[in-house]
Write a protein that binds this DNA or RNA. Structure first.
Lengths: 237, 237
DNA sequence: CGGCTTTTTGAAAACCCTCAATCCATGTGG
DNA sequence: CCACATGGATTGAGGGTTTTCAAAAAGCCG
């Protein structure tokens, strides 16, 4: 269970298949292209661990295709999903000495890996890069605050609505409110601080009243964005 | 309600009284003494706002004495307390352009204020300082992750236990499990994602079975630390 | 097609919240 | 200095939302 991160290098890509949620890789953000020279590309299979909880944090990572979750596992089986990472997202950089969370692929994915030492050496010389990294940490902090609000204040329907709108916003704009969930109901539940049953029931209720459409469990269509937004409207500060 | 932060400067200290929870100010952490040259000391009264939500974030702050809370207020009255700050704690630096949270004094307090521009200018030249600020942001992120775990996974007794142990650990070591709560039950409730009634009931239950002592509502004594720790033992990863 | 996992659905229970009344501490004014 | 008013804290009863336990349905994979 608590084994070391097992990482498939590029040449282990036997039977690798293109990810469901594939998106064209966004161009590296300003300053980030520096990193591409020191990157290793990892091919990870569905459900495969990229790094495990409490392992030394000596790499930064970036999703190139597919998707990734970061999770914390507790002694009694309770689980918390910290984030879902989509193509372009950096992760693993928020750790101090060791990773607080494990990172696992939601589906067959390509992940770029950057040696931490090398990144920090580059950051010493590039103001742009160091500022970018700092901005990323701050952005992550802001995201964490949003999650705290969700977990601390919101009801189940509000959490689900927030989640659906977020996923919709992160999908390619061309999708028009249609997207596919790469994660299981358990992942969603552990992300939102609910049980799988509550997630399922709430989604069903939204489907019943026509707010969303659900096909094959994972194909979501937002039919009434207004309704979802009004569900969480009371929360806007 | 949403007025600008009103700040009492030193000379407005009429009727200022030494804070209940006063602690000797810890010596500035390495690199931080640089900041003291550009500091302004604010005298803030109990319940006074230091800065308000959505105000431009052009200062960093540090608690010198007393205590401070950071809060987010929602449209329908729901409230979230993000953190309780004690002497030595820096705050306000996690903001991007504007503050996500308001900062308010829990009691009459002294707060050091550093102009953001000046701090960043200093950070440009002092590797020590810039690394310190980055480390602080990372520490804050780690704290946020702990809160997410609390809000997402824990029951009410677990949240209260965690809170009490945290407050005890942050009190001066000489206190021996005795400390005073500067914040109201509402603050605690909004911090833990509970209601004041649940906070009150849970504290009473702990008092009844001898785990803690409560005097005059705010004076807490941890009588059975082991019991509190075992309440949250199942959560250790 | 058949076995498996995941998801959905149902019924009952638990937990926490809401509403309401009382208690207590604090501060004020006589 | 005491009586009283005020606001926060506690306590109680009842209800609602979410969880738990259990079973059926649906999707997935060989």
């Amino acid at each position: 269970m608590a084994g070391r991160a097992q990482i498939a290098e590029r040449h282990q890509a036997a039977r690798w298949r293109p990810p469901l949620l594939s998106r064209s890789l966004p161009p590296p953000a300003g300053g980030l292209d520096l990193l591409e020279h020191i990157a290793t590309v990892l091919v990870v299979r569905r459900e495969q661990e990229i790094y495990c909880q409490d392992s030394p944090a000596d790499h930064y990572y970036r999703v190139m295709s597919g998707s990734v979750r970061t999770v914390k596992l507790l002694a009694d089986g309770r689980r918390q999903v910290s984030a879902f990472l989509l193509p372009g997202d950096l992760f693993g950089f928020e750790a101090l000495a060791t990773h607080d969370f494990a990172a696992e692929a939601l589906q067959d994915s390509l992940v770029a890996r950057y040696p931490r030492r090398a990144v920090e050496a580059l950051a010493q010389r590039s103001v742009q890069l160091s500022q970018l990294l700092c901005a990323l940490a701050t952005a992550r902090l802001r995201q964490a605050h949003d999650r705290m609000l969700l977990l601390g204040c919101m009801t189940a329907p509000e959490r689900i609505s927030t989640f659906l709108l977020q996923m919709s916003d992160r999908a390619p704009p061309s999708a028009e409110g249609r997207f596919e969930l790469a994660m299981s109901r358990r992942d969603i539940a552990d992300f939102l601080g609910l049980t799988i049953e509550t997630v399922s029931r709430t989604l069903t209720a939204l489907r019943r009243d026509g707010t969303i459409g659900i096909a094959r469990r994972i194909r979501i269509e937002i039919r009434d964005r207004q309704a979802l937004q009004s569900l969480i409207g009371a929360l806007r500060p």
